[in-house]
Design a protein around this nucleic acid. Structure first.
Lengths: 106, 106
DNA sequence: AATTTGCACAACCATTCGGTTGTATTTATA
DNA sequence: TATAAATACAACCGAATGGTTGTGCAAATT
């Protein structure tokens, strides 16, 4: 199996999307992310590891606390892929339209 | 664990993204998708099941062949989520800018 | 000095994932 | 009619996922 640790996989999990949502409002430490999340600190830490490994968050030590900051420019890759796919998809309909129009003219 | 069968999960796998790319150019039957994919027909069939379950493709029987067609409007959900997150993220920087500007004025 | 807080690391666990092989069934085609 | 093609269904497999508990340690707080 291919080693997958990319943005697509990062945002696939709902808990990770929740984390990103929280962090998009500003940097937080782990405890603040854990609060009201319904999962343990260790669980959150695992998700943060995934997010960090694909560059979606950066971690900086501050005393004994660790601050997490989002790096959402990485999401460009997702937007680009979606847009490219949809562009092709729309072109397909344009072709169909053209085909039908041409057929009508005959 | 929560039942996850959504668009985010659908596009998380590189093979599924490849399938979507192929289908965005037009409808194909399974054999055409399998061609040059490097995986077995059964493997592809599993991916198609996932894609179908979250409404990203529709399957229609045509004699003994089965045609797959992409339904990429579902990708709106992804775009919306990404845009919402990034909007918040950018506002955060604006706040920081404002903070720094105000500080300078003092 | 004692205790609490924040975190890292490791082990464990059930489930899902991504893929395979193998068999059976239906539908075209030579 | 025999055979090839397209698919469906099920079992299996190793690895990854998403979580847990448990232990230990350094840094604040009392």
């Amino acid at each position: 199996m291919i080693e997958r640790r990319d943005v697509f996989q990062a945002i696939a999990d709902p808990t990770r999307r929740m984390i990103i949502q929280k962090l998009s409002r500003g940097a937080l430490n782990i405890g603040q992310i854990v609060a009201d999340s319904g999962i343990t600190r260790q669980g959150i830490a695992k998700h943060l590891k995934v997010l960090s490994e694909c560059g979606m968050i950066s971690l900086t030590q501050k005393g004994r606390e660790q601050f997490c900051e989002a790096r959402l420019d990485q999401l460009d890759e997702v937007i680009d892929w979606v847009n490219a796919s949809r562009k092709l998809w729309n072109q397909r309909f344009e072709k169909l339209d053209k085909f039908l129009t041409d057929k009508k003219k005959q």
